[in-house]
Simulated assay, not measured.
Amino acid sequence: MGCGRNFKDDNRVAGEFTDDNCVCDVVRSIADAQNDVTDELCDVSCERSINSLVSPVSRNNLDTVPFILYGKDLKPFKGFGADIQGGGMNARFDCIESFVFRVNEVSDNCCAVLELLTCDGDPDQPGDQHGAKCDKDPCEQLNGLGVNELERTGICITVDLNCFCAITCLPAVSLL
C-alpha cells in the first residue's frame, strides 16, 4: 500500500492494515495501546514499540510510543507550537518545534491530536523548550539524547493523518 492508494484485498491476513491510510492505522494502534496502559502495566519498529508498551510480561511502566511522521514528499514533518511563560506584563511566548510526537487521540476520520515532545530542559522554564530548533532532521534532534531526556511539552497540534505517507516509531518510553 502506498500513499494515496487503497489496499483492496479480501484475502488479507489478520493484523494487516484495514483502513485506507496505513499511517492512520499505525497511529490509531499507538493511541489504543497507550490508552490501555495502566500504572501496573506497563529493536525498533512500530509493531515492536506497540508490543513493548502493552506487554503484561515486562511490567516496564512504558506509556508512550514516540514517533516521527513523513509528508507525501517523504520529508520529516516538524510541528510547531508555543506556550506562555511568565505572567502579566512579563508574559512571553516560548516557541517549540519538534519532529517527535506522542498521540493523544485519533478520531474516526483520521484527525489526530499530537503532543510535541522535546528534549531540552525543564518545560516549565522559559527558553528551555527548544526541541528541534535549528535541527534539519529528526536525527539532529535525537542523536545522543538520553531516553529519559525526552519530555512532554503539553503543546498539542491537530493533524489530518491522511496527509502523511510514512511513520517511524521510536522505542516505547515512560513519559507520564
Results as ranks from 00 to 15, higher is better:
residue 156 C to M: 00
residue 43 D to N: 14
residue 139 C to S: 12
residue 136 K to I: 02
residue 1 M to H: 13
residue 33 A to I: 03
residue 135 D to S: 11
residue 162 N to T: 07
residue 146 G to R: 10
residue 31 A to E: 14
residue 137 D to L: 03
residue 137 D to M: 01
residue 69 L to N: 08
residue 91 A to Q: 11
residue 36 D to T: 09
residue 91 A to G: 05
residue 141 Q to K: 01
residue 78 K to H: 01
residue 16 E to R: 12
residue 152 R to M: 07
residue 147 V to D: 09
residue 51 N to F: 13
residue 123 P to N: 10
residue 86 G to L: 03
residue 67 F to R: 03
residue 114 L to I: 02
residue 114 L to E: 07
residue 13 V to L: 13
residue 43 D to V: 10
residue 166 A to R: 15
residue 65 V to R: 05
residue 43 D to E: 15
residue 74 L to Q: 14
residue 151 E to R: 15
residue 154 G to A: 00
residue 84 I to F: 09
residue 69 L to G: 00
residue 161 L to D: 03
residue 48 R to W: 11
residue 20 D to H: 08
residue 101 F to Q: 00
residue 10 D to G: 02
residue 114 L to C: 04
residue 162 N to C: 11
residue 87 G to D: 10
residue 21 N to L: 12
residue 86 G to H: 05
residue 33 A to V: 02
residue 25 D to E: 15
residue 68 I to C: 02
residue 65 V to E: 01
residue 28 R to C: 04
residue 53 L to V: 09
residue 68 I to T: 06
residue 123 P to D: 12
residue 85 Q to F: 03
residue 50 I to M: 05
residue 78 K to N: 08
residue 127 G to F: 07
residue 42 C to E: 09
residue 131 G to A: 03
residue 44 V to S: 15
residue 30 I to G: 04
residue 149 E to A: 12
residue 140 E to H: 02
residue 29 S to I: 09
residue 17 F to M: 10
residue 7 F to S: 14
residue 130 H to K: 11
residue 131 G to T: 01
residue 79 G to F: 03
residue 141 Q to N: 01
residue 155 I to L: 12
residue 96 I to A: 05
residue 98 S to F: 02
residue 135 D to T: 08
residue 141 Q to C: 05
residue 138 P to N: 05
residue 172 A to S: 15
residue 84 I to A: 04
residue 140 E to R: 08
residue 59 R to K: 15
residue 168 T to I: 07
residue 64 T to F: 04
residue 137 D to E: 08
residue 153 T to F: 03
residue 100 V to D: 02
residue 6 N to Q: 08
residue 124 D to S: 12
residue 133 K to F: 14
residue 144 G to T: 03
residue 24 C to G: 13
residue 173 V to E: 05
residue 14 A to H: 07
residue 169 C to G: 09
